[in-house]
Design a protein around this nucleic acid. Structure first.
Lengths: 223, 223
DNA sequence: TACAATATTTTGTGATCACAAAAATTTGGA
DNA sequence: TCCAAATTTTTGTGATCACAAAATATTGTA
């Protein structure tokens, strides 16, 4: 039909747009572990040709957000206890450093925004809105780390989050309540005092308690 | 010509083979910063069709080994002082943790192999074989980290190395001699004693001194 | 010679096709 | 009803084409 190449959506290539959409969907928890995704299936769903989807999927498998089976089928990886522990360790060492690097660039404006995100997180927990929680939680952390000017840490951190997100959301759904111990308060306090050491501890505690609880508790509930 | 799909090289797809080759070439320092790479150019060079090259390049840009310009052209990223510093910080926090995680799995066999790699590194330095040095150096570190059973840290570490390698090799070429302070000895000693703290310090020192020296000294010499 | 305008070539992107292999479905016999 | 064999459909991979835009080369004029 439309044989002319029209990068009609803001000068981006179709491939880039599809990639961003899928990436976002994965981070938002729209993809469940074990779900298999096909090129043509996604292409039909997104109303694009198979070509851009193919490249987007290849990119996502490269950053371990998806995995390819021996026969080339693409699916959302399943979580294992060992893998989750390793991902937690990766999050801790990367995000500790990223937070400390970002600290000097955290001004009053951003601190207020972070505080708003924190309140939103609490609201989402209160109303048991799992997806809303996951999204607000991510905004808090990413907004913090991206205050640093660098271009190295964020992609690494995002790769780790992409690997955790499907599992996290699917597990949260099977939990009636989860640890509301709000470590974000400690992070905010450390930022206000410009205390790098306290910030490092707070970030580590936040990650360890947020995901560590899942390692122990109802692991079996999920498929 | 050959219209049938024959995965003639060991059941791998052409795309996977091209990707591995390019990845290896980048790590080996065959690509200089600033060099531009084209799909068709590489396809002709590797005697494959443009298709697999296209996907391989997309993957490598996703992991920041290559970068795309505003017009879609792909090239090897140039280094900046700030970026190198950030990459060094990333290496330190990732490799410190990876080494400590791997330590329990380092047996006598692997320790001997690591020692051989270390001796090879020294030989390469002695004969000023820069590429040989880079390769042996990488083998030492990757062999150490991959002793751990995990699947999370290695890809992250490799992504960082991919970003450093082109710059490292091109800089080494302009240096008549470089810091031979052999921190690997300390790493090996820490491994033998199963001393996690000492290992962490040794890895950090190795990275900081190896790349930190470049940050100061002849930065300007390269293009 | 210098430089801007024009023409040519190169290049990335997306679409589509053929093919083989894997999945899914149907079929047929006990 | 059950299960294995045969058939059909789905799917990933690689090749090739068209197109537009960018990069490069060429030309013409002062």
């Amino acid at each position: 039909m439309n044989r002319s190449i029209s990068r009609s959506s803001g000068d981006q290539t179709v491939q880039a747009r599809v990639y961003s959409q899928l990436r976002q969907s994965i981070l938002d928890g729209d993809f469940r572990p074990g779900r298999s995704v096909t090129i043509r299936g996604l292409a039909d769903e997104l109303n694009v040709s198979p070509m851009p989807v193919r490249e987007a999927l290849r990119r996502l498998t490269t950053e371990r957000a998806l995995e390819v089976s021996g026969t080339g089928r693409v699916s959302v990886p399943k979580m294992t206890p060992a893998k989750l522990q390793e991902l937690v360790r990766a999050r801790i060492c990367l995000e500790k450093q990223a937070a400390i690097d970002a600290m000097p660039f955290i001004g009053k404006t951003r601190l207020q925004r972070l505080t708003r995100f924190d309140r939103k997180i609490n609201r989402m927990i209160a109303r048991a809105d799992h997806q809303g929680y996951v999204i607000a939680h991510r905004k808090f952390h990413f907004d913090l780390y991206s205050a640093g000017k660098g271009s190295v840490f964020m992609p690494l951190i995002e790769s780790v989050w992409l690997q955790i997100s499907p599992f996290l959301t699917s597990t949260l759904l099977h939990l009636d309540s989860y640890s509301t111990s709000d470590r974000h308060i400690e992070i905010l306090a450390a930022l206000e005092n410009q205390d790098a050491t306290a910030l490092g501890f707070a970030v580590e505690a936040d990650i360890r308690h947020g995901l560590g609880a899942l390692t122990e508790s109802d692991w079996q509930k999920k498929a």
